[in-house]
Amino acid sequence: MTVELEDVTVHFGRTCALEGFDLSVAAGETVALLGPSGSGKSTALKAVAGFVRPSRGRIRLGGSDVTDLPPAKRGIGVVVQQYALFPHLRVADNVAFGLRAARKPKAEVVRRVGEMLEMVGMTSYARRFPRELSGGQQQRIAIARALAIRPSVLLLDEPLAALDARLRADMLGELQKLRREVPDIAIVYVTHDQSEALVLADRIAVMRDARLVDVAPAADLYAAPPSAFTASFLGGANLLPVETSGDSVKLAGQLVPGLQAARDKSLLCIRPHAIRLESPSRGDEVSGVRVVGRVVAVQWRGAVSQVVCEVDGVGDVRVEVPVDRWVPGVGERVVVALPVEGCSLVPAEAG
């Protein structure tokens, strides 16, 4: 079933939580709504679920207008951050809740509960209460309950946010498995974590200040971000000022080979992992630009060190250096090498 939002706007009093939101999600597709807190992504999901009523615009499921339909009649599965399991019901009864509310035959309820618990690997926990489960186990039960009613649309609102790093990584794998096992379901996944979006989504919709900024396949948004905000938020790219003359692009007075100037695009975008640092005494050749900078900060982050270099005429440049490579110290002068294959141009934002 397709999900369509057309010009959806949501106001809470004088506060605009969502403005002119347009998005379509196909059956079998996973779209991640990605953005900082307060960007409107959860509001968009709640509008689809029917938990909030749009001030303007329409919502369609499978081509049918459901804007005025209550949540219980939309046939949508929803999993929220805190899972919302019923504490007084055992695991099996939690999973069966929607089926019983729909007055399904007892035999069908038993069969579907068994199927769902097997799918999420929780069959042996059927008699436990939610308080007897870990966070990751509770999340699995919440997903099983959402899928038990055979929804054609599954909405996930930051389902991993309450988990620790290890559990989050494990559950990302579980959600990937879920996508394979229910390939025809349309999934809308709300997150502020870019790694989750890149792992799970076919397309990513980047949001900011209650508006949709960019939407495209995940790989395309990462490789060639269309805006400065998306470049920075998705992958933490460096955005460096350049000069353009005719078709040429210059960074710190040096020609950037292979880049062609475009109207309104005046920032060079390159991600920290694509940049190399060299000692000034070395003469390595790089197909791109080599500028001299001074190290102003170094942060060790396990597998990499983040090095911040100050470059005259450019500003600060962030570089991720793998642990097996040379890491300069604060105050050292270095050559910052920017390979042309890692560079692209994006528009500078007004203001």
Results as ranks from 00 to 15, higher is better:
V3M: 01
L5H: 10
L5I: 09
L5M: 15
V8L: 04
G20W: 00
D22A: 05
D22F: 08
L23M: 12
S24P: 01
A27C: 00
A27G: 09
T30I: 07
L34R: 07
K41G: 00
S42P: 11
T43D: 04
K46G: 02
K46H: 14
A47M: 06
V48H: 11
S55H: 06
G57P: 05
R58T: 15
G62Y: 00
G62E: 01
G63W: 00
D65F: 07
T67A: 11
K73T: 06
I76C: 03
I76F: 04
G77D: 01
V79Y: 11
V79S: 07
Q81N: 03
A92P: 06
F97G: 01
G98I: 09
A101F: 02
A107N: 09
A107D: 15
E108G: 03
R112A: 08
G114Y: 03
M119S: 07
M119R: 12
V120F: 08
T123A: 15
R127N: 15
R128S: 06
P130L: 02
P130H: 02
R131K: 15
S134P: 13
S134H: 02
G135I: 02
G136Y: 09
Q137Y: 03
Q137A: 02
R140Q: 10
R140T: 06
I141S: 04
A142M: 03
R145W: 08
I149Y: 01
R150M: 05
V153Y: 05
L154E: 08
L155M: 11
L156E: 06
L156F: 10
P159W: 06
P159S: 01
A161H: 09
R166I: 13
L167I: 15
D170H: 12
L172F: 05
K177M: 15
R180A: 13
E181W: 04
D193V: 05
Q194N: 05
L200R: 04
D202R: 10
R208M: 04
A218C: 01
A219L: 09
A219K: 13
D220Q: 14
D220V: 15
A224R: 13
L234D: 05
L234R: 07
G236F: 00
T244N: 02
S245D: 14
K250P: 01
A252P: 14
G253Q: 01
L255Y: 08
V256C: 11
P257T: 11
P257G: 05
R263W: 06
K265I: 03
K265H: 11
L268E: 10
L268A: 04
P272R: 00
A274M: 13
E278D: 14
R282G: 14
E285W: 11
S287I: 08
V289I: 13
V291P: 09
G293S: 07
V295W: 03
V298R: 11
V304Y: 13
C309H: 00
V311F: 10
G313Y: 02
V317Y: 04
V317N: 03
R318N: 13
E320M: 12
V323G: 12
D324L: 07
V327S: 05
R333M: 09
V334R: 04
V335M: 03
L338F: 14
L338G: 07
P339N: 00
E341I: 12
L345N: 02
A348K: 12
